[in-house]
Design a protein around this nucleic acid. Structure first.
Lengths: 216, 216
DNA sequence: AAATGTGAAAGTCTTCACAGCA
DNA sequence: TGCTGTGAAGACTTTCACATTT
């Protein structure tokens, strides 16, 4: 039942999942593709097609059972278990991430931070112990860390990626504003604030609501 | 010359731009589509096609002039000027963003932060003055803020988006883990750490592992 | 020789529209 | 009736391969 599913479908499914959790809290029991579409910015056909990639779990004439669909999506995403995470680089962004309570609530256990600063090593930041970078391999192995978050300065990011990969993580989330490479068997995603802002500027400049554009 | 260009093309172009800046610092004068492809994880044909959307600015047989291509991309993205930005919600993530020096270096002037906390109002965080939320409209107007960054708790995000839009920003970057809506003439992008982590889990859980982006 | 720029082909994703079910 | 599930059509994106230029 697992097939290659597109980047954009994965993102939409994540958004639906977030919406479903809200709906559940609001006490909704059923939701239609139309409602999910309205709240997520997709079309209703898109929503149905996205779900149909994994089977049919709606009820014709009613919609989808919020609770059941949540569980199905969590299964598909591998979120019905906890994930062990570490953070490399406990600077401003790193520390902010450690203080982001939602991580734990959403199933991610941040078990260690790593840094080179003597002041930080041995301390706890928002409850997470900070270790010397040298300890990375040992701790990733012993704590069976599966995901590494990189929040180092850009010049240290590739080394962090290399060491995390070699130590055995399966996935890397990179916050440093550089492209890093990882072995083919490690999954990678990058989040870059400046890059997003620049993409936003493109929208403001082009779609910039004042340029005449090439015809249809 | 402006046409609708896809989400994914915009992202790739942003990545090329970031690479070009690195190449310029490394003193490279020419770069081939093959090299940009290797460092960005795209294919060389993809790189050439992406650039050809805006005209032809390479030199056959040599490649692209790094400096010239940088300037062209910056023009396309509207980055040859400074942008005025404000931040709503000076919590952990918000404060970390204010301390992120790259913003200013990359042409974004964060002119104000807004918060509801009495302690923060009137203070400066990393040099940026923090105002009461009530002041938002006044300051966005007088300082001609063009982009608003939302870093509030999720339940306050929609109000922030509404007020920013009404006050006249052209773009919103949302860090709150919730979908917000904005008027059609406002551009919107959302960054959500948990959502990215969940997408990463999908990759780790589904069999077809290999989302490895090549590159610098 | 080396690398761009680009039509055309191949591939992917989205939308449409409606059959089918509760 | 209302809404899902889905083939088929349409739109868009990527890849291919080669003529063209330096």
């Amino acid at each position: 039942m697992r097939q290659k599913i597109s980047e954009s479908a994965v993102r939409r499914l994540s958004v639906y999942l977030r919406l479903l959790r809200t709906l559940e809290q609001e006490g909704e029991e059923l939701v239609s593709s139309r409602e999910l579409a309205r709240r997520s910015g997709a079309t209703s056909a898109q929503v149905r097609k996205d779900f149909s990639l994994f089977g049919s779990f709606g009820k014709r004439g009613q919609g989808y059972d919020v609770r059941e669909l949540t569980v199905r999506l969590e299964e598909i995403f591998g979120l019905r278990r906890r994930w062990s995470v570490c953070l490399v680089g406990v600077g401003k962004i790193g520390a902010a991430l450690l203080g982001y309570g939602d991580l734990s609530e959403r199933g991610f256990d941040v078990v260690a931070g790593f840094d080179v600063s003597e002041e930080k090593i041995g301390s706890r930041v928002h409850g997470v112990p900070v270790f010397a970078l040298e300890e990375l391999e040992r701790i990733v192995r012993t704590r069976q860390v599966e995901i590494g978050i990189i929040a180092t300065p850009p010049e240290a990011a590739q080394e962090a990626a290399d060491r995390l990969s070699a130590a055995g993580v399966s996935g890397v989330l990179n916050f440093a504003p550089v492209e890093v490479t990882v072995p083919r068997d490690v999954a990678l995603r990058t989040m870059d604030v400046v890059l997003e802002l620049e993409a936003l500027c493109y929208l403001l400049t082009s779609d910039g609501r004042s340029e005449s554009k090439a015809s249809a």
